[in-house]
Design a protein around this nucleic acid. Sequence first.
DNA 1: TACTGGACTCGAACAGTGTGCGAGGACCCT
DNA 2: AGGGTCCTCGCACACTGTTCGAGTCCAGTA
Lengths: 245, 245
Amino acid sequence: MPDFSDSVWTRPARARTGQPTLSREQIVRAAIELLDAEGAAGLSMRRLGARLGSGATSLYWHVATKDDLLELAVDEVMGEVYVPEAGDAPWRIGVSVMAGGMRAMLLRHPWVIGMLGVRPTIGPNVMRMSNRSVGLFSAAGFTGPTLSHVHSLITAHVIGSATTEAAVSAAVIRSGQSAAELRKSLEPFMEKAIGEYPEYAKWREESGVLEMEPDKVWDQSFAFGLERILDGLELWLAGDKGETE
Amino acid sequence: MPDFSDSVWTRPARARTGQPTLSREQIVRAAIELLDAEGAAGLSMRRLGARLGSGATSLYWHVATKDDLLELAVDEVMGEVYVPEAGDAPWRIGVSVMAGGMRAMLLRHPWVIGMLGVRPTIGPNVMRMSNRSVGLFSAAGFTGPTLSHVHSLITAHVIGSATTEAAVSAAVIRSGQSAAELRKSLEPFMEKAIGEYPEYAKWREESGVLEMEPDKVWDQSFAFGLERILDGLELWLAGDKGETE
DNA sequence: TACTGGACTCGAACAGTGTGCGAGGACCCT
DNA sequence: AGGGTCCTCGCACACTGTTCGAGTCCAGTA
């Protein structure tokens, strides 16, 4: 006797509202959730489909390719970054707000970092950010190619700091220990290396960096760097522009 | 009638010299070659095995996991970076040499960039670099946590600049066109965007950046940023260390 | 010389990946 | 009622990293 418990007849009619059940925005949002929760390796089209209650290949009607989806996701989270309007505050403050916001975003969505080097992002949100940035820097007094260099300098600092910070924090998470515990369990390894790397070892011991709270150190490092950069830029604006060439 | 053309008997004795045919260094070297030629997506254990004339799974005797292999590869190329000895030159020069060398390495091996954010590198070559760097910065007059911040600042600049540069250059390569051609074919897209991003468009038009040679622009941008950073650091060394807090 | 044990290689297999294709269902318009 | 468009999805393909166990070779010992 055939089993009708799962046939077309016993199964309830598909819950269709007449509207498509999937949308590109919905897919992108779900992808970001998955990426946040499990990292780049945790996102597969099949798992994403399952999370949305639909077949994996259905996604391909809304999105040409997984790479495209990632590009959309990157641009989407870029939209979370607030860039102040030019003139709302002194330019140093404006730039700091932008840089801090972008750093926070990258640490919220660390999977973005690994994608920045793969293809340039030119989505609408990135464009909006760029547009605002130009305003910010041009109000500060930068023009022409230099303006672009300044923009690159600031974003490079954000991306670069976030890269190493994210790498370490990923290692901490993977280890299942706290940062302090992880450092302790690496201690013997370091101990052995001391002989070979004397300068490094000496600094490590004397700097007092071992007793500091890791998160605070990252914040300080980022802020310190940003201040030095802004100082350097202000100096350049102040006049001696040909000093170093 | 059985086919003996490929049996143990007809097959020539394995060309064994008595030495193992595979070695970890050889594998890492081949992996780097493959990564350089085809990027991160082009490296698979099977292809790597084929390139070495051996079975894919043979690699697993020398290397625990693909991730381990990548870590080895990253550390290996890090070894290509020359870090001057402290005292061989004024510290600004020393730091510039190191930063420039690291940038060049990252552009030679752009696949490294995408891996830096995934896990921290603590291989011997990276340690050697760190050791040298400490010497460099400490000779410049930096101490304690600040020394670490300065180190982070410089490497962040290198990594950050290389990230966006590599992204663009990857896009150019993928497009199969020259940078200028690619820009031209993106022109209509940009044209349409001008209305929405007025500041950006205005800068784009007036800056003269469109007529410049792309490679030169990258170099200039990197050098400009580095000089600003070094200026900022020198200023800090000069004294007014509490100025901005 | 025979035998053992370690160093090393490798084919088969498993679970999982991105994606093309074609069949089909649901809806709207004529 | 018939067609056309939008949308979903199962199947299949070629490929991935990795495990397992069998096998091959060589050095050392008895």
